[in-house]
Computed example of a mutant assay.
Amino acid sequence: MTTTGLAGRSVIVTGAGSGIGRATALAFAAEGARVVVADLNPEGAAAVVAEIEAAGGTAVSVTGDLSEQSVVDRVAATAVERFGGVDVLVNNAGIMDRMSAVAEVSDAEWERVIRVNLTAPFLLARAVLPHMLAAGRGAIVNTASEASLRGSAAGAAYTASKHGVAGLTKSLAVMYRDQGIRTNAIAPGGTKTAITVDAEAGAHGPATLGAYMGNVGRPAEAAEQAAAIVFLASDAASNINGVILPVDNGWAAV
């Protein structure tokens, strides 16, 4: 019997078509939650829904660019229409930058990374909050990063975006704690996923950051990140709010 209190809950997981998001969607479904699998890639989202259903779970996919308000609205509406509300929002979708230092960052790189990594979680939180407030409860879990804790884990755009996610997490935690809504974040270190970095050869940013990567330690499995997300969303974490939890094999402690 589950002890998480997640059975029957309505859960949105973004970036759920692969990597940490996929592992998280599967983990929630295994706890008996009903999952909205949101992803940019239709094939990946459909595959995860099929995997959940094959195991006896319940899921539905919504695809599109989560930096667009219309897609965000569709994600929230799907959870409400199919599953009766929104109990948990996992803002996991994100993209890497090119490890660029500030002087090397193009407008396009900056704006895209900030839009996907920071603006989209804000838009999704804003969209689901009315439903959580009406229910008097809810949990939001954001995927921050080791780059939300330090300046040596990624380029300027990604680092700024993930520091912003940490700030958004803490603001949500304070603003809505008296309405029964908790917001926390994980800060993953190195993790085995398909995410890639298109770093420019010889650029100052990647060359500088390389000196700090020896402290990463053992890369995590996506399922290890998912386990932390599920815990923070569960009733077992009922008094945990506003936490940025490193899941990084001690990298943050170095």
Rank of each mutant, 00 (worst) to 15 (best):
residue 237 A to P: 12
residue 59 A to H: 06
residue 192 K to V: 13
residue 95 I to R: 12
residue 177 R to K: 10
residue 177 R to Y: 05
residue 194 A to W: 01
residue 151 G to H: 03
residue 60 V to C: 04
residue 171 S to H: 01
residue 223 A to F: 01
residue 182 R to S: 07
residue 253 A to M: 14
residue 179 Q to F: 12
residue 13 V to S: 08
residue 84 G to W: 12
residue 213 M to L: 13
residue 196 T to Q: 08
residue 231 F to T: 04
residue 215 N to K: 12
residue 41 N to L: 11
residue 137 R to Q: 15
residue 96 M to K: 01
residue 202 G to V: 07
residue 250 G to T: 04
residue 75 V to G: 00
residue 171 S to N: 08
residue 83 F to H: 06
residue 119 T to W: 02
residue 94 G to W: 06
residue 100 S to H: 09
residue 38 A to K: 03
residue 192 K to Y: 05
residue 112 R to D: 02
residue 211 A to T: 02
residue 55 A to M: 00
residue 162 K to A: 10
residue 164 G to S: 06
residue 219 P to N: 02
residue 239 N to I: 02
residue 230 V to H: 02
residue 240 I to W: 04
residue 102 V to M: 12
residue 164 G to A: 06
residue 26 L to Y: 04
residue 137 R to S: 15
residue 233 A to L: 06
residue 78 T to P: 08
residue 222 A to W: 03
residue 52 I to R: 04
residue 6 L to Y: 09
residue 110 W to K: 11
residue 213 M to C: 01
residue 194 A to E: 14
residue 123 L to V: 05
residue 175 M to Q: 10
residue 97 D to S: 14
residue 25 A to E: 08
residue 234 S to I: 01
residue 226 A to V: 00
residue 143 T to M: 06
residue 243 V to L: 15
residue 224 E to M: 05
residue 80 V to E: 12
residue 120 A to M: 08
residue 20 I to Y: 04
residue 110 W to V: 06
residue 115 R to Q: 03
residue 44 G to D: 01
residue 132 M to R: 10
residue 72 V to H: 13
residue 60 V to Q: 13
residue 153 A to D: 00
residue 226 A to H: 06
residue 71 V to W: 09
residue 128 V to P: 09
residue 92 N to E: 07
residue 31 E to A: 15
residue 244 I to P: 10
residue 82 R to Y: 04
residue 126 R to F: 00
residue 29 A to Q: 11
residue 103 A to F: 04
residue 120 A to I: 09
residue 134 A to F: 08
residue 148 S to M: 05
residue 222 A to P: 14
residue 23 A to F: 05
residue 21 G to E: 11
residue 17 G to V: 07
residue 153 A to K: 09
